[in-house]
């Protein structure tokens, strides 16, 4: 089993981490989730039938683990909101994730793209990360997300449009929203 782990780790680990980290934006959570990915992978490696490529299979598992994490977070937020009787959803837990070092040292535009990725739906975010940050093909992205090719294209287009809209709005406001938030960190 160690040999399997070594090979998978050497081939895919940094990309897997990158995918999860750009989605959850929290190093500790990403570390927990990637561990869960390996647990599932090692558990089911010998039943993997090779119907999809090993790479897309691994990333599908990472996608499931990450989405499940979000679902559990949503439920938890819901419970907290019910407990405190806060009416507006989305205002419950403030965005207090600290900026990763690698992003903090980048120019303003890159920092804003990182920030506004959150404004995309999780499917749009996954497509943009897989397609442009990890340079995966449309076919690979479709297999990982279990989308049709045309759904990847539509989601990709909508994601880019969304990102552009927020960057434009931010630019028009003189980048205030973002700068204030970054300043708080």
């Amino acid at each position: 089993m160690k040999t399997v782990f070594d090979r998978l780790y050497d081939t895919y680990h940094q990309d897997l981490f990158q995918f999860i980290m750009y989605i959850v934006k929290d190093r500790t959570i990403a570390e927990d989730l990637i561990q869960e990915v390996y647990i599932k992978v090692l558990k089911s490696y010998y039943t993997f039938k090779g119907e999809s490529s090993e790479k897309t299979w691994l990333f599908s598992i990472a996608r499931h683990v990450t989405y499940d994490y979000f679902r559990s977070q949503q439920r938890m937020k819901k419970r907290i909101s019910q407990f405190f009787d806060w009416s507006e959803k989305g205002e419950i837990i403030p965005d207090n994730k600290s900026l990763p070092e690698e992003i903090a040292i980048q120019n303003d535009e890159i920092r804003r793209v990182y920030h506004y990725l959150d404004k995309c739906t999780k499917d749009q975010r996954s497509v943009l990360i897989l397609r442009y940050i990890l340079s995966f093909s449309i076919q690979e992205t479709a297999e990982i997300l279990n989308f049709s090719i045309s759904k990847v294209k539509t989601t990709q287009h909508r994601g880019l449009k969304n990102l552009r809209k927020y960057l434009l709005e931010d630019e028009e406001k003189g980048g205030t929203e973002n700068e204030v938030k970054e300043g708080k960190r």
């Binding site: 160690k2 782990f5 070594d6 780790y9 680990h13 940094q14 981490f17 990158q18 980290m21 750009y22 990403a30 570390e31 990637i34 561990q35 390996y38 990763p100 690698e102 992003i103 980048q106 535009e109 890159i110 793209v113 990182y114 943009l128 442009y132 940050i133 340079s135």
Partner: peptide, 19 residues
């Protein structure tokens, strides 16, 4: 282009530790 310029976010955990 901006997305393609996003930096790599490296995992700093030890490989053995994860295994």
């Amino acid at each position: 282009q901006l997305l393609q310029q996003m930096p790599r976010l490296e995992d700093r955990q030890e490989k053995y530790q994860i295994y």
